[in-house]
Amino acid sequence: MLEPGDPAPDVSARNQDGESVTPDFGEPTVVFFYPEDFTKGCTAEAAEFQAALPEFRELGVAVYGVSMDDAERHAEFADAEGLRFDLLADPDGTVAEAFGVSTEHGYADRRTVLLADGEVLATYAPEPAGHAADVLDDVRGKFVVEG
């Protein structure tokens, strides 16, 4: 797993609309890896990121979900759950590998990475419930100056 201070990897993948996406890690970005579309924990985690999406966007932070599901399954998942952020299809585990996320069980481990300025700022090995709120709190701490 990448660690804070490591350079952000260069990755591209198809999203749920079949478009090739290359995230700009020079900008504040959250990438959350999850095992599989339509499972209980993954659905809950994605729903929490969707609920917090307006706040992430207000703070200028892009959000991407990544699993080893294909773009077609991501499209079904995004539609069913009302997800309005990119879900990146990583069926061969290339994106996960670039981040050092294990796929040894045939799915990506649940990990999240916060990036900006071309480097990793924080990493998480979360439980799904409450995770999006925890990341949002960290984002506020790193990118919002009070007063």
Rank of each mutant, 00 (worst) to 15 (best):
M1R: 10
M1V: 13
M1C: 09
L2Y: 08
L2I: 09
E3T: 10
P4H: 12
G5W: 13
G5L: 13
D6P: 08
P7D: 12
P7G: 11
V11A: 05
S12V: 09
R14A: 15
N15T: 06
Q16W: 00
V21H: 00
P23R: 03
G26V: 02
E27G: 10
T29I: 06
P35F: 12
P35W: 10
E36W: 13
D37K: 06
K40W: 11
G41Q: 11
E45S: 05
A46L: 04
A46T: 08
A46H: 06
A46N: 05
A51N: 05
A51V: 05
A51R: 09
A51T: 14
A52N: 11
A52P: 00
L53H: 07
L53W: 02
P54D: 07
P54H: 08
F56P: 00
F56H: 02
R57A: 15
E58Q: 14
E58H: 06
E58G: 10
L59T: 00
G60D: 01
V61D: 01
V61Y: 00
V63N: 01
Y64P: 02
Y64M: 06
G65K: 01
V66T: 07
D70W: 02
A71T: 09
E72Y: 08
R73M: 14
R73G: 02
A75F: 05
E76M: 12
E76T: 10
E76W: 08
A78N: 10
D79G: 08
A80R: 14
E81D: 13
G82H: 12
G82E: 07
L83H: 05
R84S: 14
F85E: 06
D86S: 15
L88H: 11
P91N: 09
D92A: 15
D92H: 14
G93P: 10
A96H: 07
E97C: 06
F99V: 06
F99W: 08
S102A: 13
E104H: 12
G106I: 06
Y107N: 02
Y107G: 00
A108V: 06
D109Y: 13
R111S: 10
R111Y: 08
T112N: 04
V113T: 14
V113A: 09
D117H: 07
E119C: 05
E119K: 15
E119I: 03
E119W: 08
V120S: 03
A122K: 14
Y124G: 01
Y124L: 04
E127G: 11
E127A: 13
P128W: 02
A129S: 13
D134P: 00
V135N: 02
V135T: 07
L136K: 02
D138P: 01
V139D: 01
V139F: 06
R140I: 10
G141D: 15
K142C: 01
V144S: 11
V145P: 01
E146Q: 14
G147F: 12
G147K: 10
